[in-house]
Design a protein around this nucleic acid. Structure first.
Lengths: 231, 231
DNA sequence: TGAATGCTTCGGCCGCGGCCGAAGCATTGG
DNA sequence: CCAATGCTTCGGCCGCGGCCGAAGCATTCA
């Protein structure tokens, strides 16, 4: 064996995600929100005891972080890297052999717009990246992304402060979308756009899904500000 | 359960990587070369029969592709997406709790320079990205990357044809390095650089490891062409 | 303080899946 | 055509790990 260390840790990390209950837990947390152990048990589809064991394993591996509030235990993803890894696995899953794939309304909503850790994904996010690129606010060159001068102005006017948590995270990076198979915006810009749209009341997070829904103001706002007509 | 489909496929994909034997197989293939079933059995550390079963599963999931040559069955990674997903998992593994991590010479060689699917990774690759960026041949802006005009000239002079398989792959994208925790170059540029260095005889692939070694010409070449002094 | 709620720990069951020996195909070479 | 090599299929063993019931803490509220 050439490299026992990395071999083992790769398998360990993947195995941790590879259990259906744990995968459900991680996906429930994929939008960046914190959920209680009970809520996660419901998402996982197993009992509270079993969930507790899974949560302990995920916590010990630092996939998720625990914050206690009274008798509630809130769990959230511990780092963007976990979300990135999950997204990378989803892309592999989407590339796999064709399989039974029920396309219900829930699934359709997910494909239209959803949150991905802290930014937007799905049709909306891909279209958004297109429009911003067409208007020269960002430059998407071969999978890479950068904000232009005009872009900085535009985003400032839109109410984003992109300078805030400087150097802690890339400003703007692309993230391959598993449903659209094209790039959308992540990084500080992606997160900021998502948060601003939530603050403006343009979109609302689903109750128990990563899918987001549009408010009437959102339909108007996306049309007027970004030139996007919702389907 | 909100989304049975994606939940299941995430778990399935991760579980497939999550077995130690299969993880070893995938890592053995991570440098993009094709290996026979027998060689992979050796890497996996299990018998030929068991390996055969693993290979069948990985093939059916389209993680790897089979090419028959006489009585030899050659397997290779089926797509860059698999390699990307593995790399993303390695990053999570590196971020995990500190653990016993033997740093032998093999490991040291891996950290200095190794192949990652079809491009270079490790200290060499990260330093290379730095130098190219400092000389304005590429622009690394916040995790994104683009080739400049001068860069195109420089790479052409170096013997790279970056126009060849156009539109099939991003020209230049960054890839987070698990050992250095910084970005190196992937995409067509990263693959081209790696291939060119191999063609020039600057580096050689290890026999049974992803680590690469430097030839005397390589030491000279990296110094004269890129201004990199090898450690 | 006692009951209710939320979560975890313990103990034991059980089934999935990895493992190998033996046997069965395919290809090559003498 | 037979032996050797490389790989796969079959069958059966076995252990790891996920699962739940019951019980045990911790916190909140009446």
């Amino acid at each position: 064996m050439t490299n026992i260390v990395s071999g083992n840790s790769l398998a360990e990390v993947a195995a941790l995600i590879g259990d259906p209950a744990r995968a459900n837990i991680l996906q429930a947390l994929a939008d960046g929100r914190a959920l209680t152990a009970g809520e996660l048990a419901w998402h996982a589809g197993v009992s509270a005891q079993t969930t507790s064991g899974h949560l302990a394993k995920l916590t010990e591996a630092r996939f998720i972080a625990l914050e206690k509030q009274g008798r509630h235990h809130y769990f959230r993803l511990a780092s963007p890297e976990i979300a990135t890894a999950m997204e990378a696995l989803m892309i592999v899953a989407a590339n796999g052999p064709r399989r039974y794939r029920p396309t219900g309304p829930k699934d359709q909503a997910m494909r239209t717009a959803r949150t991905c850790y802290d930014h937007l994904a799905g049709w909306l996010a891909v279209t958004l990246a297109d429009r911003l690129s067409a208007r020269q606010f960002i430059v998407l060159s071969d999978g890479a992304a950068a904000v232009t001068e005009e872009g900085h102005r535009f985003f400032r006017d839109f109410g984003l402060n992109l300078d805030e948590p400087k150097n802690t995270r890339p400003l703007c990076r692309t993230c391959l979308d598993w449903s659209e198979r094209r790039s959308h915006l992540a990084g500080r810009l992606g997160a900021g756009l998502c948060q601003r749209c939530l603050d403006l009341g343009w979109i609302k997070r689903g109750r128990d899904s990563r899918a987001v829904t549009f408010t009437p103001q959102g339909v108007e706002g996306f049309r007027d500000t970004f030139g996007i007509t919702l389907p």
